[in-house]
Design a protein around this nucleic acid. Structure first.
Lengths: 144, 144
DNA sequence: CTTGACCTTAGAGTCAACTCTAAGCTTATA
DNA sequence: TATAAGCTTAGAGTTGACTCTAAGGTCAAG
């Protein structure tokens, strides 16, 4: 049985974060001492690790809540539910990557166009491009 | 001279957002009517467009504030300052892309491993991978 | 028995970039 | 002249995931 500081040390999550996750229904200390101190057993620790792994992959806490509800009763849930969640996350990630790659392209074009030297910015091609808004013609739509 | 709603229509930014940008020192209406209504002249509009362009590229409002301070006095600033800002942003974008690509890989591996069918999740390989935390061995470190 | 480290809670603060609300003027139209 | 549309401000709310604070209870060591 681990106290919160011990679980914190072991998991790398702060005690604050562990309590925060508890408040949001993700994890729990299955026992409490008389004084109310949290005690985590092995199953609790495994659940925390599950959360950590899912979070590292990029799942939101809401996603993780769903995954956990599947985890505690696997018989009542299908593989499809799990892949749906995963696919949905992948779609989000892909969309974000595309958006960032568009920014990346634009920024590279800007950097290529400018000397970057110590001369004053009166004729800086980056400033000109921003002023004219014509970057869009080269690398389009970094919109939200 | 444009009223705020006209500039809003023209720029695609809401009147709320225009006031918000003003509050944060990014833009300004150079004139006000007797009653206090904002009126934007051509230079104001160009500044708003500059902000919009920079924001579309992915610059933060803080970055944009810096770019604007260069813009109003180009003679006192160097091309290097501009490229430094741009390079810094590009580095951020690149880092974010790498992080997301790592998530992407992991999610693809997970999806490949699971049947995604209507059978119950008792032996779902995604759930197992999350439980064992061993996804990290294949696709590493999606950390913040 | 005191010191200090650790634990508890409710609730506030942080970040970014908006987004919205309330309460009250102003302006244009019918 | 009345109504509706549009403008003003200060300030609060939103989102997500923490992060921290205050005020106080607990526990082990010396």
């Amino acid at each position: 049985m681990l106290k919160i500081s011990e679980l914190s040390a072991q998991s790398g999550l702060s005690a604050h974060t562990l309590r925060f996750y508890e408040k949001h229904g993700l994890i729990n200390a299955s026992t409490r001492s008389e004084a109310g101190y949290r005690f985590y057993n092995e199953a609790d620790v495994r659940r925390v690790e599950f959360v950590k792994t899912a979070r590292n992959i990029g799942f939101s806490l809401d996603d993780i809540a769903q995954l956990l509800s599947i985890r505690v009763d696997k018989k009542s849930h299908s593989c499809q539910e799990v892949t749906d969640l995963t696919q949905h996350k992948l779609n989000e990630v892909n969309a974000k990557i595309e958006e960032l790659q568009s920014m990346q392209q634009t920024l590279e074009i800007l950097l290529d166009s400018c000397c970057g030297g110590p001369e004053n910015a009166t004729h800086c091609s980056i400033m000109e491009a921003l002023d004219e808004g014509d970057i869009r013609d080269k690398a389009r739509s970094n919109k939200k």
